[in-house]
Nucleic acid binder design. Structure first.
Length: 957
RNA sequence: GCUCAAGUGGCGGAAUUGGUAGACGCGCUGGAUUCAAAAUCCAGUUCUUUCGGGAGUGUGGGUUCGAUUCCCACCUUGAGUACCA
């Protein structure tokens, strides 16, 4: 009997499902270990071999940890809200819930076939109302919270109201809207309910505001910054424009510093930490206030307007020779002189027209206009010109800069271009060619009280002076903006919000979830409302605390009109894709809880994720937002830890190996890759399934593939074969290079797939898929099987004899290697160790139980099906998942290898072997003797011998 | 431009604290088995050579008895980011 992977795998998968082998318990004496994968979005295309790479790695680790005696939580679920299902619904009219359900079925079938040890009883789906009930609840919690800067945490908004009632907001140090007015307790009490709500909205962690957003007309929705790449939408590549809209936003910026600090205590890949650090973009500097001088009034008189700028180099303030405002800056209109008005207006208009993309593509061109206005230098009192220029961004800092041409290259270029003075403030530095941006050496000069100081000291001094004179203060600025949370889409979480008197009202958790309404069309309405506006009725009845149902026969227009029937319109936007994925890792701990987000006991037991595996593409999206929510939930006492993943690994991408056939231009003739140089050809993707491992094309299959190739002619190589050329590309349907894991499981089995994906190379690197390589691991499994089955009948043959020293050496060497490798996530090299072990045992013809049992346990994380089969054949009743990983015993290595090699350096290399326990002196003596004979034989003088303890012997020339 | 990562046979890649460079697999070559093929097994496979050896981990230096590993400079590739004041 041969190794029959199909039968073995089907059997064990059935057994695991029936016996709930991998169900984790929330009560256990064992230490907990939480292994998590980034849950997939169930797309219609199904899985390709690249997708399970991370899942296989995490599964190996989860199984390994079970063998090590941990209570392992290893769940899986689906991030099932998303744009593709909605796009499909728009095209076909099919309800996204239906296509999502079908896609999930495909995913589940494919995942099951690979033999993962997921605890499916804990499955979550973000689009399941029982799940998004709690996403909605978190939203209401955010709404009912504000960020207290003194305590540096989010707090209940009720506490803020209490302070307002007793002392107004003078002493409040909280994150809020810039235009929040000051008021006293008496004033607060006199405010109407609506006025109070408007003020509170400026403090809430999630708030409504007129925001300039990235509007994508083609998709009919707003996009977050990380959903835009090079000025076009990540999905579809449609143009994006800036537009003002009333939107929900999240105060993630309040957490900027804590998100940065938190990176210190988590073990995440450095590149990922770097990109989050960049995204948050902390810069330390100062705010400086400049007064605007009236152009018409006599010199020195102030107009009363002030321009605040943020600068990271306040130490260079004496080098300021002009100021630049962003064209969108609010003061531009006011300060521009009549003489300059036309030029300025034209420039502002021209920049507004240019898309983000144009502005980015055109970094080199310097443009700007003088406003005619002047500002006063806060220290020297000099008149300095105020310009506008599009190199200053309205969205960063204050949208205005103090220009120091000698110390900043962009200011320098601008000054050169418009022939503005470039005063120097650096001692002994030549600035005739470019600006001096170095923060190091040069001392300041022409800088009054800063003269002779270098960067560090000058910074301290200038900030002290600015604060003393009340014209500025030290400040830390962040690039991170608040996150827009509204999407004009159908297939997302509805907000638990209705509007009464124009003000948002939260719906209490006991009435949640607010389920998505049925709509006829998934597109925005004709009058530009989001898709939910298509619902016949979408309103909230405050008497019954229910969504008004269709049988109440109240039309939405009637809802808007009627003010006294207790029915109010619901929010039409839905939440963005990152809402559901920002807390799912907590839900796995207690997924069926209907009373709470998750029970305190479950949260306290599981705490956080010990190992999180997923792609690095989520660096500034999911992985930042989820850290933000976790910190918020921690502040509000919902979760016990403020960082949810201790260790994170980014698995690399598995790329595809595309195949190209070459068509002679203008004809229907194809030429084999070896001869394509003789013609002018166009490469065309061929489906990789038509090509064998020697790059030969199956011409018949290719001809039958497309109608247009039916009558094509083929110019072959001399040996009659037709070859394709290969190229490594991203695995994608459109490139016809997708390899389906189902096909691999069918032919080689899931155990081969698992081993091979690990064997391909280091987990974190991206690497091309080559189906030809799988034969190596497949023959390893066959060898393993054959080692314990003899004859054509395949009788299972294991003896009870004691193992020899050689056999024990192989076993323990492998235990040590595999143990170390898994601990270091070096799965590729541990697969090699298995291969070596099986080869060695085959050579020794070892079929002893003493060796087989531990070896099978060792292999089981990688190849669980064959391991389980062998385990049962050995007569065990319990599942292999419950047994302990074998312990490494050094004794076997030492005892069985009495000798170890010692090498010598020098030109001539030779080897001597010594017992491990031999003393240093004895070795030295022997080597010296050896060296003497060698030297004599070769007719040279003996070299000096040095023995380094525990290492190796050197002969020094 | 800036930040980060990486450069080792025909290929994917090993060498985890500085100690026999090229493990393991693919591919290739030869052999066994077979009517033949597949499968399997065995041997070989960094380059070079006058068969003694010589060279060799992107390039050039340095530290060391000894460097793929540590330090400096440079080159190349990949990823991220982009007028962030």
């Amino acid at each position: 009997m041969q190794y029959n992977h199909k039968e073995i795998e089907a059997n064990w998968q059935k057994y695991w499902a029936e016996n709930q082998t991998f169900q984790a318990s929330n009560v256990s004496d064992k230490e907990k270990f939480y292994v998590l994968d980034m849950f997939p979005y169930p797309s219609g295309a199904g899985l390709h071999v690249g997708h399970p790479l991370g899942y296989i790695a995490s599964d190996i680790y989860a199984r390994y940890k079970r063998h090590k005696g941990f209570n392992v939580l290893h769940p899986q679920g689906y991030d099932s809200f998303g744009l593709p299902a909605e796009q499909y619904a728009i095209q076909t009219g099919q309800h996204p819930a239906k296509t999502t359900e079908e896609n999930i079925k495909t995913y589940r079938r494919q995942l099951d076939r690979i033999g993962f040890s997921f605890d499916w009883s804990r499955e979550v789906r973000t689009s399941d109302p029982n799940y998004y009930k709690w996403t909605q609840w978190i939203f209401t919690l955010l709404f009912n919270s504000y960020y207290c800067k003194d305590a540096d945490k989010a707090k209940d908004i009720a506490e803020l109201v209490q302070v307002f009632e007793s002392e107004g907001n003078h002493k409040i140090n909280a994150v809020c809207d810039d235009e929040t007015p000051e008021f006293t307790a008496t004033q607060w009490k006199e405010f109407s309910e609506k006025e109070k709500q408007e003020i509170l909205l400026k403090y809430r962690m999630t708030y409504l505001s007129e925001t300039e957003v990235n509007w994508c007309p083609a998709l009919g929705t707003v996009l977050a910054n990380d959903e835009i790449i090079n000025g076009v939408s990540e999905r579809g590549g449609h143009p994006v424009v800036r537009k003002k809209m009333m939107q929900w936003s999240m105060r993630i910026a309040a957490y900027a510093q804590r998100l940065l600090d938190g990176l210190q205590k988590i073990d995440w890949p450095q590149p990922l930490k770097d990109s989050q650090t960049n995204w948050i973009g902390r810069s330390q500097g100062a705010m400086v206030s400049f007064s605007v001088l009236s152009p018409t009034l006599s010199k020195g008189k102030e107009l009363g307007d002030r321009i605040d700028v943020f600068t990271t180099r306040p130490d260079t303030i004496f080098g300021v020779s002009f100021m630049t405002l962003a064209p969108e800056h609010e003061l531009v209109k006011k300060i521009t002189t009549d003489a300059q008005r036309e030029a300025v207006e034209q420039y502002v208009k021209a920049t507004a027209k240019r898309s983000e993309r144009d502005r980015m593509a055109d970094v080199k061109t310097i443009s700007g206009v003088f406003t005619g206005a002047y500002a006063e230098h806060p220290f020297t009192g000099q008149k300095i010109q105020i310009w506008i220029g599009d190199y200053v961004l309205a969205s960063y800092g204050t949208g205005a800069v103090m220009a120091v041409p000698c110390g900043d290259q962009r200011d320098y270029d601008f000054a050169k271009h418009f022939d503005i003075e470039i005063p120097t403030i650096f001692e002994g530095v030549d600035i005739s060619e470019k600006a001096y941006e170095d923060k190091g050496g040069a001392k300041l000069t022409n800088s009054d009280f800063l003269n002779g100081l270098t960067y560090k000291k000058a910074m301290k001094t200038i900030i002290y002076e600015l604060e003393k004179r009340e014209i500025g203060y030290g400040k830390i600025n962040y690039r991170l903006r608040d996150a827009v949370f509204s999407r004009q889409r159908y297939w997302g979480e509805p907000f638990p919000v209705y509007y009464k008197d124009g003000m948002p009202q939260m719906i209490d958790v006991k009435h949640l979830p607010i389920q998505l309404p049925e709509v006829e069309k998934y597109l925005p309405t004709e009058d530009g409302k989001p898709p939910l506006g298509n619902a016949e009725v979408w309103a909230w009845d405050t008497k019954t605390n229910k969504v008004v149902s269709n049988d109440l026969i109240v039309s939405s227009s009637a809802v808007e009109k009627s003010k006294d029937n207790d029915v109010y319109p619901l929010e039409l936007n839905t939440m963005p894709g990152w809402a559901g994925s920002s807390w799912y890792f907590n839900r796995y701990m207690d997924p069926h809880n209907t009373e709470e987000f998750a029970s305190k006991e479950a949260l306290n037991y599981w705490q956080d994720v010990d190992l999180y595996i997923g792609g690095s593409e989520h660096a500034t999206g999911h992985l930042l937002y989820s850290r933000f929510w976790q910190k918020f939930l921690y502040d509000r006492g919902v979760v016990p830890v403020d960082e949810y993943a201790k260790k994170l690994i980014n698995q690399g991408m598995i790329t595809g190996t595309s195949a190209f056939v070459h068509r002679v231009e203008g004809t229907n003739k194809f030429v084999s890759a070896g001869q394509k140089e003789e013609f002018t050809t166009t490469p065309i993707h061929s489906d990789v399934s038509f090509v064998n491992t020697s790059d030969e094309l199956d011409i018949e299959s290719f001809k039958n593939w497309r109608e247009e190739y039916k009558d094509a002619e083929f110019i072959c190589e001399e040996d009659g074969t037709f070859k394709v050329s290969r190229e490594v590309e991203k695995m994608s349907k459109s490139k016809y290079n997708v390899v389906n894991p189902d096909a691999i499981c069918e032919e080689y089995g899931a155990d081969s797939l698992r081993l091979f994906e690990m064997f391909l190379g280091p987990l974190e690197q991206s690497k091309p898929w080559k189906t030809s390589g799988i034969s190596g691991v497949y023959s390893f499994l066959k060898k393993l099987w054959k080692l314990y089955h003899s004859g054509n009948e395949g009788v299972f043959l294991v003896t009870e004899d004691g193992a020899t020293k050689e056999e024990l050496k192989t076993l323990h060497k492998t235990i040590k290697k595999v143990d170390d490798d898994i601990a270091n996530f070096s799965f590729n090299t541990s697969v090699s160790s298995f291969m070596i072990a099986v080869n060695e045992l085959t050579a020794l013809k070892c079929n002893k139980r003493e060796i087989l049992e531990p070896l099978v346990i060792l292999i089981s994380p990688y190849a669980p099906h064959i391991a389980e089969e062998l385990w049962r054949k050995l007569g065990h009743n319990e599942s292999i998942s419950t047994v302990q990983f074998p312990e490494f015993d050094e004794k076997h290595l030492i005892e069985s290898s009495k000798n170890y090699p010692i090498s010598f350096n020098g030109k001539m290399r030779f080897m001597l072997e010594f017992p491990l326990d031999m003393s240093k002196d004895e070795i030295e003596k022997q080597v010296l003797a050896h060296e003497k004979t060698q030297a004599q034989l070769q007719g040279r003088t003996p070299k000096k011998v040095i023995v380094v303890p525990g290492k190796i012997v050197n002969i020094v020339g």
